[in-house]
Amino acid sequence: MSNLLTISPSPHVHTGDSVNKIMYRVIIALLPALAWSVAVFGLDALRVAAVAVASCVAVEYLLQRFILRQHPTVSDGSAALTGLLLAFNVPSSLPWWMLVIAAVIAIGVAKVSFGGLGNNPFNPALVGRVFLLISFPVAMTTWPSPHTADIDAATSATPLGLLKEGLHRGKALSELMPDLPSHLNLLTGQTGGSLGEISAALLLLGFAYLLIRKVITWHIPVFVLGTIFIFQGILWECNPVRFADPLFHILTGGAMLGAIFMATDMVTSPMSHRGQLLFGVGIGIITVLIRNFGAYPEGISFAILIMNGFTPLINTYVKPKRFGEKK
């Protein structure tokens, strides 16, 4: 009796889209930026990415297989994506064992212990990254110089690092500007920094791909970058000597990477567009505050983690405008 008719409630058709497809599409969207970082930082970049991906996948598999005794779900691609995003957020010179530690924290602590994919309150890759940043501040802020730039030094600071350092020493912005990469260089990625954050253009290309494949919607990236632009613009307008221009801020550092790939992490971002607006604006404001007034030169990972914490609250209180809602 193998040919029994199937009965199920409607609907009887499905889009055919799946969690795996979503994860692999995001990975595809990250590949151009990865390729560029290999071009810029050499095979070191590839090494970091490979170690991060492999250790994230391994940690998830081992935990599920031997500790939780569940059916491992590594094939859904989410662990690989976490690994890749983790690699994008660290300098290419990072030793391999730090990446393994970060993978254990990201997957073990931030994801599997909460119940695996879909149940983690915080973005695992960012938890791993922030853990490293706090535990190994020197290794995490020693940036190899890009091969493509004509700089002799083996290491160089990130544009945001240079900016913060310079302003801290009391220099005016106009004195610093010549040392900072131009907007065009920021867009194309001729600058020091983490693996994946250097080329804004290629990240935007990935964004375009994700939009076309309908993996994410435009809302969160636009809200985040828009808020950074507007808020920084206001500061710049008030005091151009103290604050850098807004375009510089959205092109540099992790702004693009964070807004397009980290803040849009489905699990940890709000469900409704109104909620996403609140979430994006929150990230933008916190980022600008940390960058301009905080101790760290870059703040988007902290901003995203902080807003991740607000996501359940936002989901509870910010609802979509219902059809036929009574006023």
């Binding site: 199920s8 969690v19 994919l117 879909g118 699990v267 409704s272 609802k319 219902r322």
Partner: peptide, 27 residues
């Protein structure tokens, strides 16, 4: 037969597509 079985159910990844798709703006 190959169209009639539902795909395997996985964890909700909170992608919000159902919220996006709902014509009554429910969650």
């Amino acid at each position: 037969a190959d169209e009639s079985t539902r795909p395997q159910t996985l964890n909700c990844i909170r992608c919000a597509r159902c919220v996006e798709a709902c014509p009554m703006s429910l969650e």
